[in-house]
């Protein structure tokens, strides 16, 4: 069996002001995984990623990337790691292309070795035509994509992304999701933190929820979602909803002339709803979930923990 991409054991971090950011967390991420670390602000997500990438000093515990300890074998661990931090952290006066080439140089790769990769990444991330601009001239979305390109220039096996799509518009966010999914399909292990729970639900296979410096849940997204006891659907209808509509066994309410909100409990079948509606000559145009499922669960878990 291959070595895990990431193993964290009893990791703690106490900042100089006495704040306990991590209280002994344990995590394991297998190679090829798409893993999300979720938690409210100040939960310890960025501190965890900071320790992994060498930007934050741990207080105790261990962390390994591809089997190399991030402290005692830091140089080996870092060769496998690409880091996209939360805040923009490139030199504002350096040109886009130079930022990539400089980062490659820090990993021992010369310009001639990475120029094709730099061109490929910049083209894939729609930055090629901006390559000669100073980074400060880029829009927020472009800066986010530049940080991803920079983190990938040395072809890391593990990519850490700390809220990679924060502040970017929906279109760019979707294209970044596609890019990350493609990257993961090619074998790169991806670990991300995000505030967009939809992002975690769409992209990630496994998930850990962290709060107040402790992991309160670590499982697969699928397992987590099965813990939902109810789910609320919105049905848009092609016909006006009659006053005497009947959906026996389901909680439902009329939300418009042609709209219905139905709560489906675990074990109930949606097919049953459609069958009853069809019997009453009510045609469904479309169906959607009322809110993000993971978000509901996340709120419930964090509330329950507190």
């Amino acid at each position: 069996m291959s070595v895990p991409a990431l193993v964290v054991k009893d990791l703690t971090k106490v900042y100089n002001n006495g704040f306990k950011a991590l209280k002994g967390i344990n995590l394991s991420v297998q190679q090829g995984d798409f893993f999300a670390l979720l938690g409210p602000n100040g939960a310890g997500k960025s501190t965890t990623l900071g320790i992994l990438s060498g930007l934050v000093q741990k207080t105790s515990g261990t962390a390994e990337v591809m089997g190399f300890d991030v402290n005692t074998e830091a140089f080996s661990a870092r060769r496998y790691l690409g880091v996209v931090p939360q805040e923009f952290n490139f030199n504002q006066f350096e040109k886009v292309y130079d930022i990539l080439i400089t980062q490659a140089g820090y990993f021992g790769l010369t310009h001639s070795q990475v120029k094709d990769e730099a061109e490929k990444l910049l083209k894939e991330l729609d930055l090629w035509e901006h390559r000669n601009k100073q980074s400060r001239m880029l829009s927020g979305g472009m800066k986010r994509r530049l940080m991803i390109a920079r983190a990938l220039i040395h072809k890391p096996k593990v990519l850490i992304l700390d809220e990679p799509t924060a502040g970017v518009d929906i279109e760019i966010r979707r294209s970044m999701w596609e890019f990350m999914q493609e990257l993961n399909n090619q074998g790169t292990t991806i670990i991300l933190t995000t505030h967009y729970l939809e992002e975690a639900e769409q992209l990630c296979r496994n998930i850990a929820i962290i709060d107040e410096g402790e992991i309160i849940k670590s499982t697969s997204v699928r397992n987590l979602l099965t813990q939902l006891n109810t789910e609320v659907f919105i049905l848009d209808l092609n016909t006006t909803l009659p006053d005497n509509v009947s959906l026996e066994g389901f909680d439902y309410k009329r939300i418009a002339e042609d709209g219905l909100e139905i709560t489906v409990n675990r074990g109930q079948s949606i097919n049953h709803i459609f069958a009853m509606l069809t019997e009453q000559n009510i045609e469904v145009r479309s169906m959607r979930t009322k809110s993000n499922r993971l978000e509901e669960l996340f709120v419930a878990l964090v509330k329950g923990y507190k």
Binding site: S53, G54, L55, A74, F75, S76, R78, R79, L81, V83, P85, N89, F90, T102, Q103, Y106, F107, G108, R150
Partner: peptide, 8 residues
């Protein structure tokens, strides 16, 4: 930080 995350 570009330097700190690299094997420098």
């Amino acid at each position: 930080e570009e330097l700190m995350v690299a094997p420098v």
